[in-house]
């Protein structure tokens, strides 16, 4: 009878996971497979025209100046945003974990930006950084600037505004994750350090940071994935053009522009999306390897 028993066990197992498998299979796996298929074709989805063109779409990615700009912008964005948001989140979490008055209120306030929709947030930041907006006014009044900067239309500032916006809105989320992880750091370690005469900074650098390494890996990965896929803020900021002068053109935005609108180059868009996911995979892998915790426990 054990054979039969085993059979039922397997059957039960499949039955229980099947709803998830079916849904994921259709909406995730099938979509990915279809995207890969499309990326090797010249496609018109309206007329159902598929022409196999091998690696042409992929080759175009490496010869096209637009895609080069988009990848450069995105990589710059990731390189700036991810370290800053991780470090800021860690510091803020450490501060909020300390015994300060009204820390619950602070936590709630700090968490608010994450709850704001990124569309609304972008509009607010565009107002703040507009030519006659508060940021310029403040800088002028404090004599930091001689004349207002056109943040939104100057290619050397546009992406930086989006960076600031992105950091501002994502830090609280990661801060919350760090805060949760901090609850797991045993007090005994800190006590031992105190006995050895460590000060606050030393405790933070030599206990908190290493203890949180596994969480840092998670935060880094989430940050890298999130920033590489930057779309909505760049789209709203530039009205979909990626301007001024391609300075806010991200890979995801370029994928969108090639897939929809009048372009209808779905194959090229799919190829670019696949290259983007490969890049994300590689960068995440490197980040994770670099941050590998030397056995903590």
């Amino acid at each position: 009878m054990p054979g039969k028993r085993r059979f039922y066990e397997v059957l039960y197992g499949w039955l229980f996971v099947s709803p998830a498998v079916v849904v994921l299979g259709i909406f995730v796996m099938a979509s990915i497979v279809f995207a890969v298929y499309v990326s090797f074709h010249k496609v018109n989805l309206f007329t159902g025209y598929y022409e196999f063109i091998g690696f042409d779409n992929y080759i175009r990615i490496f010869t096209d100046t637009k895609t080069k700009t988009a990848f450069m912008n995105t990589i710059t964005f990731v390189a700036v945003v991810v370290p800053i948001q991780t470090i800021l989140a860690l510091i803020m979490a450490a501060v909020l974990d300390a015994k300060i008055k009204g820390k619950l209120a602070f936590r709630a306030i700090y968490f608010l930006p994450t709850l704001t929709s990124s569309a609304a947030l972008t509009m607010i930041f565009m107002f703040l950084f507009s030519f006659t907006g508060p940021v310029n006014q403040l800088a002028l009044n404090m004599n930091l600037l001689q004349e207002p900067i056109n943040f939104l239309n100057d290619p050397s500032f546009a992406l930086k505004v989006i960076m600031a916006m992105n950091i501002w809105s994502t830090v609280p989320f990661f801060m919350t994750i760090y805060l949760a992880a901090l609850q797991d750091v045993p007090d005994t370690v800190y006590e031992a350090a105190e006995v050895d005469g460590a000060n606050q900074v030393q405790k933070f650098l030599y206990i908190t940071v290493p203890q949180l390494k596994p969480v840092t890996t998670f935060v880094l990965l989430m940050g890298i994935i999130g920033t590489f896929q930057l779309f909505d803020q760049a789209y709203i900021f530039s009205n979909g053009t990626g301007g001024p002068e391609n300075s806010t053109l991200t890979v995801a935005l370029l994928v969108f522009r090639n897939a929809f609108g009048q372009n209808n180059t779905m194959g090229f868009a799919a190829a670019m999306a696949i290259i983007l996911s490969i890049v994300i995979f590689i960068v995440s892998y490197i980040a994770q390897k670099l941050n590998k915790s030397e056995s903590l426990y």
């Binding site: 239309n153 290619p155 979909g240 301007g243 002068e245 009048q262 372009n263």
Partner: peptide
């Protein structure tokens, strides 16, 4: 025509550099 999206996109992209 069917390529106005691209043409106008690039126009809007580079217009600010004239003003600056």
């Amino acid at each position: 025509g069917t390529t106005m999206d691209t043409i106008n996109n690039e126009y809007r992209n580079y217009a600010p550099s004239v003003v600056s």
